[in-house]
Design a protein around this nucleic acid. Sequence first.
DNA 1: CGAGGCGGCTGCAACGTTGTAATTCAGGCG
DNA 2: CGCCTGAATTACAACGTTGCAGCCGCCTCG
Lengths: 344, 344
Amino acid sequence: MAATLRDVAALAGVSIKTVSNVVHDFEHIRPATRERVRAAIDELGYKPNISARSLRSGRTGVIGLALPELSLSYFAELADAIIQAAERRGTSVIIEQTGGDRDREIQLLASPHRQFTDGLIFSPLGMGNDDASYLNVDYPLVLLGERIFAGPTDHVTMHNVAAAHAATRHLLATGRRRIAVIGAHQDEVIGSAGLRLRGYREALAEAGIEFDPALIAHTTLWHRANGATAMRELLATGVQFDAVFALNDTLALGAMRVLQESGRRIPLDVAVVGFDDLDESSYCLPALTTIDPGRDEIADTAVRILLERISGEAADVAPREIEAGFRLVQRESTDLVPADSPVV
Amino acid sequence: MAATLRDVAALAGVSIKTVSNVVHDFEHIRPATRERVRAAIDELGYKPNISARSLRSGRTGVIGLALPELSLSYFAELADAIIQAAERRGTSVIIEQTGGDRDREIQLLASPHRQFTDGLIFSPLGMGNDDASYLNVDYPLVLLGERIFAGPTDHVTMHNVAAAHAATRHLLATGRRRIAVIGAHQDEVIGSAGLRLRGYREALAEAGIEFDPALIAHTTLWHRANGATAMRELLATGVQFDAVFALNDTLALGAMRVLQESGRRIPLDVAVVGFDDLDESSYCLPALTTIDPGRDEIADTAVRILLERISGEAADVAPREIEAGFRLVQRESTDLVPADSPVV
DNA sequence: CGAGGCGGCTGCAACGTTGTAATTCAGGCG
DNA sequence: CGCCTGAATTACAACGTTGCAGCCGCCTCG
């Protein structure tokens, strides 16, 4: 069986508590004693028992990460970044998938898993502003995303409006005037879709271009398939457009595929901008112009402020609202010249 | 504070142990008592403390999943499937990323995290057959992938050789004769690359076609960028080919991009087959013919046999080697006719 | 009618750790 | 030379749960 403090103490000829002190780098220990204990620890291969420690101290060193699903590249890349950020700080991550379902999200906030984790990073998709009260939980919670604002917790988010504004302005700067939108949500005001659409409209207004509802394609989900379907429907209406602002990259990839199938050339006939800067967005053809929403910054900030709450450092700090910086990444899909010149 | 067994016992007027028995559906309890305890549990909102339970029982209800990185779509989709399979069986999953680094992989097998988890599903990328002895651990372990065979543990894998054989035969059946390979590993015998290359050679031999080393492009990693680079290098050599077998989909996507940039039409000039059946492979243009390696089956099997080991059901079963079924998914990238006819 | 069995329940000890308070010890100072 | 101080160490009691042994009372059977 695994060695315990007791075993190490016996071998080193000290009390159990002294071993514990050595493990925790308590300062008042004679160097000789410390050495003896260290040697015993090595010899027995002692590893602290986390269950016992957490039973005693109430901490587990594990945080939860609740997100819609890992199969959506954005969340896979976010999870990657969060796990790395947590690991840098000596913390592990349990991932729970909600499928974006409101009921599962609410359920998860009160699940027994919660007391296995010291805190939770939560990216809801089904819940809305009206559900903010569910976030009144008795454990540290950091909220991600754009579904709920003015909740009772820390919140890390992106500059959705400003970034969408920048993306749209970029399309306008390349001379496009009829910019279709893929992925809008009916009557949504907040939420990623609502906010990004607002940035789009602001940029149009700024340029003195009238908003045309016929250019807005709605989808409930933001999978590739939805981007493809939405684009197919848009083409079927016969409405004219010379650019597409897809509200995320995955939609953009689905839409681009349909555009190309239909014989349109990107960016010659239609320019396309996405949002998220997925890994694959730089490898599709043409490479996709997009918004880098500061994923690493979001991940690092979320983990940092969650651990601040857990440790109590930030005990009496009011809920914080932090927006990560964004960046427009220009690639071929909005080039002024055709992108089909050979690279080889 | 959270309610404990003691609180519930006091409220229900029974002993602490009786409450524990009710929680565990122990059979010899009078219905009246059971009801009284249930009511008290509901009233106090009692949730068992997992740390205490695991300290006492040695089980945590959490398994570890160690994989290279979530940013690689294959592993994101695998993690998705494993988390779902685990959840169906009431188990949570902690994900650890190794970056495919051998030393980190070895380290992780002995990390203190291990005693936080009841067992581990491990997908190594850096370790090789020579490292099999590191898998002699004192906790339940299920191995995934093709890096290590004949290890001392259960192993869930895919029919790499047969599937690669099928993929190659499919290309041959469409009339292709000069089939390039993207992603081979120098001198590798086992490992996904080695096995898939073997399937490729077997299919060639079967068709009486000589193996041409000039058609084999090597890459160390299997990211999009590597697929692109390898294809660029292959084109630069001037070698002629009419098909590409990319050893996974991600490589295929990178390679397709370069092929298209270079003006080659897929599948008219070059047919392409991948391996993995990623979500995105059905949405790229042209949609990618690939091998569905039975990801869900692998995930479900891995979780199932790991939990069997944990529960002790499979205590004296010899290490098992399980191969999931595969399936060739035919899409546009190997069509006999051009794929550029409009769909809209 | 008494022994035995069993359903229903309880009490106690332990899992490995850490916080608190207490104890020992060495050295400096009056 | 005794007292005080602070460094170094220890003893002990929890944390919430579960395994084990055992107790009571009722029922059954010889």
